[in-house]
């Protein structure tokens, strides 16, 4: 299975400058910005008020 890479997203990732969505530790944002990488920090809190069962159900319902 050899895939022609130019057209695939994973190949394209290496050829373009990443643009990052950071979900979690805020410390990573500064490092990326220092390298001129665009970052959007998500103001993350545990989904469904931290109820893992509800979060799993929501994932199945496709949020």
């Amino acid at each position: 299975m050899v895939i022609k890479q130019e057209g695939t997203p994973s190949g394209r990732l290496l050829m373009s400058k990443p643009s990052v969505v950071n979900v979690g530790l805020a410390g990573f944002v500064k490092d990326l910005r220092d390298c001129d990488i665009e970052v959007v920090q998500v103001d993350w809190t545990p989904p469904a008020d931290g109820d893992p069962k509800m979060a799993a159900l929501l994932a199945k319902l496709g949020t």
């Binding site: 809190t45 989904p47 469904a48 008020d49 509800m54 979060a55 929501l58 319902l61 496709g62 949020t63």
Partner: peptide
């Protein structure tokens, strides 16, 4: 308003 998004985002 999507009830899924309300519950997920809190």
């Amino acid at each position: 308003i999507d009830v899924r998004l309300v519950v997920e985002t809190g």
